[in-house]
């Protein structure tokens, strides 16, 4: 039997690859935004033009290019989801690993904290915090991360509980592997699937949350994000007007959807490829 590497097997799985391509496209859009189009600001005269060769996604009520907005919005969305994922991962993964592996007071304490955080009503809290700390895009990202870690910690903890009972963990202890290595190598490798999938979910929901907050006017009004575009479309009545300037909201919404789907596909692709048993 041939032993496939992680990469080979990942490429073999079409859906994961598709997700990766989608993610790469969005990431390069975001990273290369300044090269692709000028930062949309001010106003133009060509208002509410449908998609054309000049304006791929049409223009909005102020005559600004919607394609440029989506591209610059991708930049913001990536930044937000990246920061949120980092915050959630840095807190959630160690918390889940420790509470799942260490029985006794420390484990129960962390578990209790996870439970308390899970019962918090996320959206209202996000709105309140975002209103209090001010609407900078970094603040929004950190808040999203702070409210996303408990679900990540819970997934990590549950998987850890299952894995830490297995004999190879005891065997690792027996041959003198340090607890840190057991947690962050032996256990984490075996729960990488659910954790990575959950991370991509956090990545995806972070964009949704950011869009939601911006849509409610709690985002950063000085930056373009997908939520801001939708808010402006909504405020201008573009969603319900007839005749409808559908391009104003359609492309942005599609991008949010594609972003979420691609990250989910990527997550499950990684999950399949990480498991040596499903590699072949």
């Amino acid at each position: 039997m041939q032993n496939r590497t992680f990469v080979e097997s990942f490429v073999k799985k079409r859906l994961g690859l598709f997700g990766l391509l989608g993610v790469l496209v969005i990431v390069s859009l975001g990273l290369l935004a300044p090269l692709i189009s000028a930062y949309p600001k001010g106003y133009g005269t060509e208002i509410l033009l449908p998609p054309s060769e000049k304006f791929w996604f049409g223009t909005d009520g102020l005559g600004l290019d919607l394609f440029a907005q989506v591209v610059w919005g991708a930049r913001t969305s990536l930044y937000v989801s990246f920061v949120a994922v980092m915050v959630a991962a840095v807190i959630g993964i160690p918390a889940g690993l420790i509470s799942g592996y260490k029985k006794g007071l420390l484990g129960s304490l962390i578990d209790g904290i996870i439970d308390i955080f899970l019962t918090l009503p996320v959206l209202p809290l996000m709105i309140v915090i975002a209103a209090v700390v001010g609407s900078s895009i970094t603040n929004v990202a950190v808040v999203i991360g702070l409210l996303a870690w408990p679900s990540l910690a819970r997934v990590t903890r549950n998987s850890t509980l299952k894995v830490s009972e297995l004999q190879f963990i005891e065997a690792a202890r027996c041959v003198g592997i340090s607890p840190r290595m057991i947690l962050f190598k032996h256990i984490l490798l075996n729960i990488a699937g659910p954790v990575l999938v959950n991370l991509t979910l956090v990545m995806a929901t972070a964009v949704l949350s950011e869009s939601g907050l911006s849509f409610l006017g709690l985002g950063d009004p000085t930056t373009w994000s997908w939520g801001t575009i939708l808010k402006k479309a909504w405020d201008a009545g573009a969603v319900i007007d007839t005749p409808n300037p559908w391009w104003w909201w359609f492309f942005t919404s599609s991008f949010i959807m594609i972003y979420v789907i691609c990250f989910n596909l990527l997550g499950s692709g990684i999950n399949d490829a990480l498991n040596p048993k499903t590699r072949d």
Binding site: L166, Q167, F168, E170, A171, A172, C174, V175, G176, I177, S178, M181, H186, L189, N190, A192, L274, P276, K277
Partner: peptide, 26 residues
């Protein structure tokens, strides 16, 4: 110690060579 269940006592995500080499280094 040598453990009972040969199917559970090796970390499925780690190459067997590394499983043996790890304690030597640790």
């Amino acid at each position: 110690m040598v453990f009972q269940d040969p199917y559970a006592s090796l970390n499925p995500r780690i190459k067997v060579g590394n499983t043996i080499a790890e304690p030597i280094l640790a």
